[in-house]
């Protein structure tokens, strides 16, 4: 995987964003929440690395403080989706029978609603805290993970090493965790990377609609939404968060594609 130059660039970019966002308070002298009338709509430079927004706030500080929330929500939602999706997928693929039918039908039903519409509905009625957003985005991604895991389990469970363990008297739990799980992790990791891109898309979309964590919390989507009204005065406060949203999603998508290629060389030729 690391032999792929694209993947290395993506990982380096994502690590850079995470590192800067973790140490942002040491990297800029300005408080990201501090409103100042004298410094409105400053272009990049002039004491502010990326300029200032309509309230004279430091965009550099805000965009990387926002990265924590956006990436944090995305990461934990995918952890949630991964845990539930893998459990359901492995269970359905291993036990088959009723559990399999139940999980498959459940997936069919969730796929009847456009995900963003469900997310809007849930968030607007239950409240739009970071925890709610994480749960909604995560749960809406469960079907995809479960489906991919399930179809891999169907092939893995027929492999000889599983049969060998079974004939030596391994319990079902041992078969699932020791024999099957390590063999389905590869497609699950691909889904995780693609899912991160999806989660950033959802989170920023919801915050753009004003349905993300409420201010003073900073998210990329809300930054874009609020500064978009002043685009004719200065487009920099819209440009930076938009660019980071796009590049982050792009990085996760390329990473996912490259992981998939490295795991399935047959697809590479296509």
């Amino acid at each position: 995987m690391l032999k792929d130059r694209r993947a290395r660039i993506c990982i380096a970019f994502l690590l850079l964003v995470v590192t800067v966002s973790l140490f942002i308070s040491y990297l800029t002298p300005h408080n990201p929440q501090k409103v100042s009338g004298d410094s409105r709509f400053l272009p990049p430079g002039q004491g502010y690395l990326l300029g200032t927004d309509e309230f004279g706030r430091d965009v550099f500080g805000r965009v990387f403080t926002g990265a924590r929330l956006t990436l944090g929500i995305s990461f934990f939602s995918m952890v949630l989706a991964g845990i539930i999706g893998i459990t359901l997928g492995v269970g359905a693929g291993f036990y088959r029978g009723i559990l399999e039918k139940l999980v498959m039908r459940l997936i069919d039903i969730t796929l009847c609603f456009p995900p963003i519409v469900v997310a809007i509905f849930v968030v607007s009625f239950f409240g739009s805290s970071a925890v709610h957003l994480t749960c909604v985005i995560g749960l809406l991604y469960v079907p995809r993970v479960a489906r991919v895991v399930y179809s891999s389990v169907l092939t893995v469970r027929e492999m000889q090493h599983v049969e060998a363990s079974k004939s030596m008297g391994a319990s079902n739990l041992r078969l699932m965790t020791v024999n099957i799980l390590p063999n389905i992790l590869a497609p699950a990791v691909v889904q995780f990377s693609l899912g991160m891109g999806h989660a950033v898309l959802m989170e920023s979309g919801l915050s753009f609609l004003g349905l993300g964590p409420a201010p003073p919390a900073i998210t990329w989507g809300r930054m874009v939404q609020q500064s978009a009204r002043f685009m004719d005065i200065s487009y920099f406060p819209v440009l930076w968060p938009s660019m980071l949203i796009c590049l982050t999603i792009l990085a996760f998508n390329i990473l996912g594609d490259s992981l998939r290629d490295s795991m399935d060389p047959r697809l590479k030729s296509l």
Binding site: G197, L201, G205, V224, I245, C246, L250
Partner: peptide, 14 residues
């Protein structure tokens, strides 16, 4: 790939 990765609202604002 760019088409997948640019959110519609960013594209719209652009």
């Amino acid at each position: 790939l760019l088409g997948f990765s640019v959110p519609v609202f960013v594209m719209g604002i652009l």
